[in-house]
Design a protein around this nucleic acid. Structure first.
Lengths: 190, 190
DNA sequence: GAGATTATTTGATCTATGTCAAATTTCTGT
DNA sequence: ACAGAAATTTGACATAGATCAAATAATCTC
């Protein structure tokens, strides 16, 4: 998520300060304890969560298992896009994996501003564009890479994950079993 | 793609006719012969292709194989999102699978209109939102469903595919081998 | 409409990864 | 620092789906 968020931030700095102030009036800082949920299955997601500090993840349950689809660090944005866009109950959870500080960006306020100011809608659009591109790439990885290569690719692209996240969660993020991940790791470090 | 495109079309009908006319000045009808390419790897994708009639697909090559990622029918929109958004050479092909009639929507013209008219940008944003949501779902299918279930799900959600597309392409679309797909089909009809 | 090309099916293996179970290591709270 | 819990590793085995090869079946070409 990161490089694009950075670009969006830069652009937002160039924005008219009055507009920016108006948008930011819809921002609220909030803290979550480790293990608590920013969003639960069934709720309608009406905010974006900009991570200030700490670690979080998005996951869903399938056959008793938890499958992690995204892992968030500083400056990432967590949201159930499906629920947010389609205005239907979320099929995913967003969970704090550590004590977490986030900026909650309220949807309806943001939308009002974005209807009034094209430059705000532009930023919103950029965010979603990037999200879509990122998803397309991720799908491609699943289609073309085997378990080991997916792990190596993660190490390279998202090195923070390996330092902060339990292996169980990493395994589900790579869509492989715990045991297989463990074997991959021992083979690589050997 | 379809239901959302329909909604976007409806909304566009309610738009100011002057604006609509201005946008549509950037539309050009174009025809492609079966087997020809609307976009090749290496080109920068600067248009959307709204399919009027015929069938097309998006695919990429990986280890000598062609992996099909999308199949387009009437009213679908074909575009290399990655290339279009990031303005870099496309890593995918878009190919006509039959004689094809499309409406080519020129990017720069569209963008100009969308900077001038928030309602145009809104439609553009809606398109990408839907695209992102669709991708998220597709990724989930790959993570949770086995080959047979993916095939059944495709039959249900995109029944047109089975009627018009050679099995080789369907297999790559489901990310399974030709032979496995053939076995799945014979088992199901048995 | 016969031969040639291409697509699909069927059969026999092979392999990556999953599953289940047990052993070991690491972490936690007191 | 220790007991108990949780996470991770290791081992043995099972399986979905791949690959290679051959046999049919369908389609195209002249």
């Amino acid at each position: 998520m990161n490089p694009y968020i950075k670009r969006i931030k830069e652009l937002s700095k160039k924005m008219d300060p009055g507009i920016l102030a108006e948008v930011e009036r819809g921002f609220v800082e909030k803290e979550y304890a480790k293990g608590s949920f920013l969003l639960r299955v069934g709720q309608i997601c009406s905010s974006h969560f900009l991570i200030q500090s700490g670690v979080a993840r998005k996951f869903y349950r399938h056959n008793e298992k938890e499958i992690t689809t995204e892992i968030y660090f500083h400056d990432d944005v967590a949201v159930s896009l499906d629920s947010y866009i389609m205005k239907r109950p979320s099929d995913i959870y967003i969970e704090a994996l550590s004590p977490l500080k986030v900026m909650v960006i309220d949807y309806s306020r943001f939308q009002k501003a974005s209807q009034k100011y094209p430059e705000v809608m532009m930023l919103d659009k950029m965010f979603i564009e990037y999200y879509a591109v990122w998803f397309e790439q991720k799908l491609k990885e699943f289609q073309t890479l085997d378990a080991t290569t997916r792990y190596l690719s993660m190490l390279e692209k998202e090195p923070r994950i390996i330092k902060h996240i339990p292996v169980t969660i990493i395994a589900s993020y790579l869509n492989i079993s715990l045991e297989t991940l463990s074997r991959i790791r021992s083979k690589i470090s050997a």
